[in-house]
Design a binder for these strands. Structure first.
Lengths: 344, 344
DNA sequence: CTGAAAGCGCTTACAG
DNA sequence: CTGAAAGCGCTTACAG
């Protein structure tokens, strides 16, 4: 273990700077800066000399200096509930695939589904003066709302659309519509005693379930006893447990809507263990249509949500605004698709 | 949609700065800075006046200025193959849980399992002058290796340990040992005609499989025909396909090692469809022991890898080094555990 | 416990 | 196409 610490906290030591490159290539710092950022505005010979000097010196530009002088950070802040969630993985990939090629860095943080953690995270991120921000959901603390308004940077609220106006822009789907669509599908298939399983119970899960129940109620088939929810994070294991509990109280159910595919996997596994035939004795449906849902036995009926596209679209909206464009549409509903398979 | 652009690219406009806070609270900028970063070195009255001014003005510190002046960025760069991978999710969570409370920001990027993308990502990250870096694996391009050496920041190479010395520090497990352990387990259980399924085939998958095959070879039970791999990313669907192909060429197999749990899920589902009894007719084992592995039917025998702890330990090693500590141990082997269940 | 001065490494705005 | 000057908003190093 040799010493690799570069004396953090001290004044910089022999770090190669723009001026070093300028000196070596016999031009001004200004010109080196242009050769780097707007190469077409510099003559070819100069550009070549500068490039050689950069290689020879091993020059690495300093983004902090660039941000400070240029008054823009080339950074996008992304606030999501949890990186370790298959749903947000896909969203992040969509954001990343747009931001990275455009030269924007992503600053990412987790709220762990807590409004309070969201607030402190956003405050912290604001100290980076990101050029734009993406946050999850339309609900946030009033103080945070004010901070974001004061920051006056382009902002996209993702995942959800329709429950209230975004602070600036939004892209997502209507979760209550998606829940309602699943309820209608189940009613059409003739199910009568329909249960609901929910975990995490963030705002979007709540709206999913509410949309589902509202349709059942219209059909006179709603029953509070058949709804089982918990604030615990959604896992496969939890799906099995919740189904067991639900069946204990309601042995006569003929269908169950799980507000998440993870839960649905667990519910199907539990049915396998109990030799309950899905969907003949009990139909099961999920939400989000994750990768494994087409492969499980029976294959899972679910709601396909455009996760990757939500991320991609959000990032694109940000990029366009950062390029000075004025967007016609500040709210984008990407829609969902009910994927009917064998389980319901 | 009102104008929220704060004229990026222009000189700053009426942004509240340290000096504004200093003026309002009647102290020097220096003192405000201290009140912010080392509150205990400032008298209580001054601290209070400063805090009031900060609130009144809505002051948000500028990290770019702080980095530039202080010669440290309070940022950790994290380079992983893919955020949308359950394995790395857990690792990231471990890193995050250490870095966030310590006041470090995470800069995260994907290599998509490409050495070339890794190189360009690391170059890009270096322009942020991160205080430390975490990268996946021990293998990297020579040019990147040189760049990292020149940067002279603390570096932890994660996931893998033992194949070669790290550039600076490393934490992970031995993938060939893990593969070998699984092979020994299968031999002990009496399986003779053992197949192998691999996807992605990054260095670590390769070593897993090599370790597995070496043990089979010692027992005189290795057979190239029984090994089926692909560079495609590992998915549940792919697991089913690969198993089908493998059985076509080797109808007599009595066990299959999947170098990933995703593949194993797909393989089990495929067996269910074909009414092949697991493990009686065909044993199946996976790798990584993801959340659902205990719940699937039959429950999956797998290798439990300390993903969260790898992330957490890597971040802790970095934090200690950044605090000036000299670590006794620069290579940490966190070990694995064979989780025997019903499938093999 | 507090402060005046200098400087971090870039880019903007203005010239020519 | 190229450059000299000023400044971005902080912190370091040195005093007192």
């Amino acid at each position: 273990m040799t010493t690799r610490q570069s004396q953090p906290g001290s004044r910089s030591k022999g770090r190669v700077t723009l001026s070093d490159v300028a000196r070596m290539s016999g031009v001004s710092a200004m010109t080196v800066s242009r050769a780097l950022n707007e190469p077409q505005r510099v003559s070819e010979q100069v550009r070549e000399r500068v490039e050689q000097a950069i290689d020879a010196l091993g020059y690495i530009p300093n983004r902090a200096a660039r941000s400070l002088a240029g008054n823009r950070s080339h950074t996008i802040a992304v606030v999501i509930p949890s990186v370790s969630n298959a749903v947000f993985n896909n969203v992040i990939r969509g954001i990343y695939d747009v931001c990275a090629p455009a030269g924007y860095e992503m600053l990412m943080g987790n709220t762990y589904y807590s409004v309070q953690q969201e607030s402190s995270l956003i405050s912290k991120f604001l100290t980076h003066h990101p050029d734009g921000m993406i946050v999850t959901g339309l609900d946030m603390a009033d103080s945070t709302r004010r901070q974001l308004e004061a920051a006056a940077i382009p902002l996209v609220q993702i995942m959800e659309v329709g429950t209230s106006a975004p602070l600036d822009m939004s892209v997502g789907i209507s979760h209550s519509d998606a829940g309602a669509a699943m309820a209608r599908y189940m009613l059409e298939r003739g199910y009568k005693r329909i249960g609901v399983l929910g975990a995490q119970m963030d705002y979007r899960s709540q709206r999913r379930i509410q949309g589902f129940i509202d349709v059942l109620a219209e059909a006179g088939l709603a029953d509070d006893k058949r709804v089982l929810t918990t604030a615990e994070p959604s896992t496969v294991r939890l799906g099995g447990q919740l189904l067991a509990d639900l069946l204990l109280a309601n042995p006569d159910l003929d269908a169950v809507f799980c507000c998440n595919d993870d839960l649905a996997y667990g519910a199907i596994y539990e049915c396998q263990r109990r030799h309950i035939r899905v969907p003949q004795q009990l139909a099961i449906a999920g939400f989000n249509d994750l990768e494994g849902s087409a492969c499980i036995n029976p294959s899972l009926t679910s709601i396909q949500t455009p996760l990757y596209d939500i991320g991609k679209t959000a990032a694109q909206m940000l990029m366009r605004r950062l390029a000075g464009e004025v967007l016609q549409q500040s709210v984008v509903d990407l829609g969902f698709r009910l994927q009917a398979r064998d389980s319901a």
